[in-house]
């Protein structure tokens, strides 16, 4: 049996590398009974359409950034609530707390969660050092989802919208002055061509997830299904390690290329913590009882 698997990110991204290995392992473990072809970088299906394409069964399996669908269901937005889980351990606990609710939301769409891997922690790139929340005031800050927009709002930054591909020109011409993203993205897009400072704020660890169409999954032979789950578990474990290794390597690459790596000042950290607490409460309010329960479960741990 042969499965097409659309993924959003390019081949060299560690998520894609991990998935390519996952596909190889499935092929090997099933003796070729399940052959997954990875279509990376949105080459078959573009990112916003991947989830619904898996849901409708056009493709049986795919990868998406969970928070891309935060507008549809708050539970998809939990991992991108800023300053809630700011380390790999926290992110792991948040994932565990979120998982049952996430699986339930997916099952309503006829989807089954296979595994989920985080991006490196998010930091702020800018053309100068930002040492306090006040320094953000009036700064043209790139926002691309409700979470980043809320950060801008609460910190007094000016929200601007810039497509990723347009970032180099936008920074060069001053249409944007700060953006929040991972060290990996900074390396992939060679941010040193246009910014000078990286603030290691570890704001949140957004996660990708690999989902499979439940009907297609259940139609698999029991042996093949077990092999798929086993490869998924292995890919998840490997993915978290790769993500951590990538954080270190990418941060080093940034430094090697002349970007100043800034440990956030006391003032900036406290300011962000306050903003984060407020956004988390707002998230819980929007997510209703189930969401509040997830948040409490995470905080209780």
């Amino acid at each position: 049996q042969s499965w097409d698997m659309p993924t959003p990110y390019p081949d060299a991204t560690f998520h894609t590398v991990n998935i390519a290995q996952f596909a190889d392992e499935v092929r090997e473990a099933t003796g070729g009974a399940l052959d997954i072809t990875v279509h990376s970088a949105g080459s078959l299906i573009k990112h916003p359409e991947i989830k619904r394409t898996v849901r409708s069964g056009v493709v049986p399996i795919g990868e998406v950034l969970i928070s891309l669908h935060a507008n549809e269901n708050p539970i998809y937005g939990l991992d991108s609530v800023p300053f809630l889980a700011t380390s790999y351990e926290d992110a792991r606990r948040l994932y565990e707390a979120q998982r049952p609710a996430l699986e339930e939301a997916l099952s309503e769409e006829g989807l089954t969660l296979l595994f989920s891997v985080p991006w490196p922690p998010q930091g702020i790139y800018a053309g100068q050092e930002i040492d306090s929340i006040e320094a953000l005031r009036g700064l043209r800050f790139r926002t691309y989802n409700p979470g980043t927009a809320r950060i801008a709002e609460l910190s007094g930054a000016t929200p601007v919208q810039v497509e990723v591909a347009d970032l180099p020109t936008a920074f060069a011409t001053g249409r944007v002055e700060a953006t929040i993203t991972s060290p990996s993205t900074g390396v992939n897009s060679k941010f040193w061509d246009f910014v000078s400072h990286y603030h290691d704020t570890q704001a949140w660890l957004p996660r990708n997830m690999v989902v499979v169409n439940t009907a297609a999954f259940e139609a698999l032979e029991p042996g093949v299904r077990a092999a798929l789950l086993e490869a998924a578990a292995a890919a998840e474990a490997r993915g978290w390690e790769m993500s951590q290794a990538d954080t270190e390597a990418a941060t080093k690459t940034l430094a090697d290329n002349g970007i100043a790596i800034v440990v956030p000042s006391e003032g900036l950290s406290t300011g962000f913590q306050e903003i984060g607490a407020q956004i988390a409460d707002e998230w819980a309010a929007s997510a209703g009882e189930a969401g509040t329960a997830v948040l409490e479960a995470y905080r209780a741990n």
């Binding site: 916003p48 849901r55 935060a70 507008n71 549809e72 926002t143 989802n145 409700p146 927009a149 919208q161």
Partner: peptide
């Protein structure tokens, strides 16, 4: 899209 209440991912 209507049945699943699909909305754009942005602001």
């Amino acid at each position: 899209s209507w049945r699943f209440g699909e909305v754009s991912p942005g602001l």
